[in-house]
């Protein structure tokens, strides 16, 4: 066992021999979009993401389904599964089975197994002073989804956030493997600052973020001002606020966005300063257009996050 329960990491890793280790992860949730086919895609992209965040390649997967047979037509389930299968195909993953139960609340997700070289495992806990931090998807899906639930988001916004959540983290994962990357995680329920806090703890480093560079879904800020903020964002803030230092220019709506729980969020990559510009360029030319350097790692005894 190389990465296990003692570390709150994205997935578990088991070494098979000197050249091969298995990564295993599981994730499922209730629908976040109305369209069953897209829900299937998003749930699959989200489950696969943990493998990408550790630098691995997903190989096989099993479906996990909770379905309310009494209330819903089986065609809905078929569409969800089709969405999942199409996403797995895109990722080059083989579906090898699954399990479903009857459940009053619909749920779907995957258990995923991937391969990785035992010496090339990326975890959250390896920040190095001087590193640059790259984020590969804009923030705000939690807030936008709350606004969608509230019926105030335009169809245009619904579509763009759906596509964003369904996007695999495969490309950035492939590209980063060619550079000196020290640590990586994917941004999900804890929000950007929650996940950064996990990386900072016991690292002997601090983090400085340039908030004006952090990519954000354009409409999310106004929805935050209107109070369409998921309860999870407040919980994230309460849990980690002691580690944060915000400059006065970082207003509370922006802080909400930085704590906003993400569904199938982007990768957060800690890369050596010398490789950072090359990696960023490679990401952009490789189709990860929204990738941005959002800050850096500082060597300090204070394990805190400074948001400028």
């Amino acid at each position: 066992m190389i990465v296990g329960l003692d570390r709150a990491d994205d997935a578990g890793v088991y070494r098979v021999n000197d050249d091969l280790a298995l990564i295993q992860t599981v994730d499922f949730f209730t629908p976040i979009v109305d369209d069953p086919y897209w829900f299937g895609q998003i749930a699959a992209a989200n489950a696969l993401s943990d493998v990408y965040a550790m630098g691995g390649v997903p190989k096989t997967a099993m479906n996990l389904v909770g379905f309310p047979l009494e209330q819903m037509d089986m065609s809905i389930l078929r569409e969800i599964l089709q969405g999942g299968i199409d996403k797995m195909k895109e990722a080059g993953v083989v579906l090898v089975g699954g399990h479903s139960v009857e459940d009053p609340e619909l749920k779907y997700g995957l258990s995923v197994t991937g391969f990785i070289h035992p010496k090339r495992i990326l975890t959250q806990k390896n920040l190095k002073g001087g590193d640059r931090l790259i984020l590969t998807k804009p923030l705000g899906t939690g807030i936008v989804n709350t606004a969608v639930k509230g019926g105030i988001a335009s169809p245009e916004v619904v579509e763009s956030v759906t596509h964003l959540m369904a996007r695999l983290n495969q490309k950035p994962a492939e590209i980063m493997s060619r550079y000196e990357v020290h640590a990586c995680t994917d941004i999900t329920g804890f929000g950007l600052l929650g996940h950064l806090a996990e990386m900072v703890l016991d690292s002997g480093c601090g983090i400085r973020l340039q908030s004006d560079r952090i990519p954000i879904i354009p409409e999310a800020r106004e929805y935050a001002q209107m109070g369409f903020i998921p309860a999870g964002a407040y919980r994230n803030r309460e849990f980690r606020s002691g580690m944060m230092e915000f400059l006065p220019s970082v207003d509370r709506f922006l802080q909400d966005l930085l704590f906003d729980p993400q569904t199938s969020g982007g990768l957060l990559i800690s890369v050596s300063e010398k490789d950072s510009a090359d990696l960023l360029r490679a990401l952009k030319t490789g189709g990860v257009h929204e990738a941005v350097i959002i800050g850096g790692v500082i060597s300090t005894s204070e394990e805190r996050i400074f948001v400028e």
Partner: peptide, 24 residues
């Protein structure tokens, strides 16, 4: 225009008006 502000990295510097989208 929100897309434009994001493009120029000016989202946080906007001081007047409401951020909007193409549909509006």
């Amino acid at each position: 225009c929100g897309t434009c502000l994001t493009h120029f990295n000016l989202l946080e510097k906007k001081m007047v008006g409401e951020t909007t989208n193409m549909l509006d």
